[in-house]
Computed example of a mutant assay.
Amino acid sequence: HAAPTFESHIVTDTPTMLYRSIVALALVGSAASFSLQGAARLTTPQRSTGLVMDEAAAGPLASDIWDSSPSVKVQGSTLKTWDIGEESTQRVQLSLRSSGRPIDANVELWHTPSYIPTKFRIYTENGESRPVDAIIETPKHPKTVAVYNTGSMEFPFDATVANTGLAKAYDSLADVDGALVQGGQITSYTFPAEVESVQVLLKTNERNMKALIELTQGPNQVKQFIEVYASVGYKNPFYCVIQTPGSNNAIRIINQNTVEFPFDAWVLPYEEGAEGADDVVMGGGGRF
């Protein structure tokens, strides 16, 4: 299959008003955005050397995304957009990485200039050891993915958005029961050192979803967090894989909504050391 063609556009201004104006251009075929046209090359997740990938995790992410899809450098205070031209594209993979510097970015899915069905803010302390890999469901058309680097010019990062053709995340976890997280509840999961990465899926039945995902290491040191909003959490569930190098890693899931808005959470090892890992320890149940 032919690789997607891209045309670069850089915007340096506050993102809120720019999102509304630039998406209008993107939706009428402007060259002011990247364009994912045609079928993207299908990729199959590969096992990393010395690691064992959990069988349940073998579906949603393409591990060779940086080799199979074109990437762009997103400078500080810069907006990049990807117009998803194919109506049949049901989801795309978003991947961000840096040369070791922090990543601080806002990501939005635009459906129309006035409707953003899902958005999330991402911060990671080190974009090399803890890059960002997430799945964005895109059930409605037209659709555009926007990535805004909120950091300064000293903190650029690489980004790619690609239609991998892989199955949705929930399909790979359908045999695993999720944990119900009520509004205002904090749930934590601790992992042994053998776990190299953790997969997180958040999903609701019908209502909207507001959640905070935190990766902590040691005594409450937040190494990475993702703040998620979805207007309808079953149409736009959130899935990501979080790298967990070192020991004393924990994932916290915080439902930032009121008690009327629960969601289901799946937090499971994605890649494990060759010797395997002990059981995940789930805690929490408190409220913030």
Rank of each mutant, 00 (worst) to 15 (best):
T5R: 10
M17C: 10
S99H: 08
Q90P: 00
E196Y: 02
N208K: 07
G178D: 09
A32S: 10
A146D: 05
A146K: 02
V267L: 07
L18K: 11
G165R: 08
V28K: 12
E272D: 11
V267A: 09
V107Y: 04
A230Y: 02
H1E: 08
Q199G: 10
S69T: 05
Y234M: 11
S152Q: 12
S88D: 11
Q37F: 05
G100E: 12
G286K: 07
T12I: 04
S48K: 10
V222M: 14
V232Y: 07
V74R: 02
T16Q: 14
S71L: 07
T190Y: 04
K223C: 08
V259N: 12
L202Q: 01
A146C: 14
P142W: 08
Q46S: 15
R130H: 06
V92L: 09
Q93M: 07
K143M: 09
N106W: 05
Q182T: 04
F225P: 00
M17N: 14
A40S: 14
E196K: 03
S68I: 15
G178A: 15
T49D: 14
P113M: 09
N149H: 07
A146T: 03
Y19W: 13
A39M: 10
G127Y: 02
S30L: 06
I22D: 05
P15W: 10
I253C: 09
S35C: 11
A2T: 08
S129P: 01
T81H: 05
G38K: 05
S21K: 15
K203N: 08
W110F: 09
N106G: 09
A193Y: 04
Y148V: 02
L36S: 01
D158K: 05
A56H: 13
S30G: 15
N236T: 07
Q256R: 10
P102A: 13
E272H: 03
P142L: 12
A265K: 00
I10Y: 06
Y234W: 08
E128I: 01
A169C: 14
Q46H: 12
G29L: 11
A40K: 01
G285M: 06
I254V: 15
F157V: 03
V200W: 02
P113C: 13
L79H: 04
I84C: 12
D133I: 06
S33G: 06
F120T: 01
Q185G: 03
T244K: 05
E275H: 07
P219I: 08
F155G: 00
A169M: 06
Q221C: 07
S68F: 10
A105I: 03
F263E: 00
A62R: 00
E260W: 06
Y229T: 01
V280T: 15
F263K: 00
G38F: 05
A56S: 14
L173E: 02
Y270L: 05
A193W: 02
Q90D: 14
E128S: 12
E275G: 06
L180N: 12
I251K: 04
S69N: 08
T150D: 14
T190K: 07
S21H: 13
S188A: 15
L109T: 00
A57G: 12
L173K: 01
A40C: 10
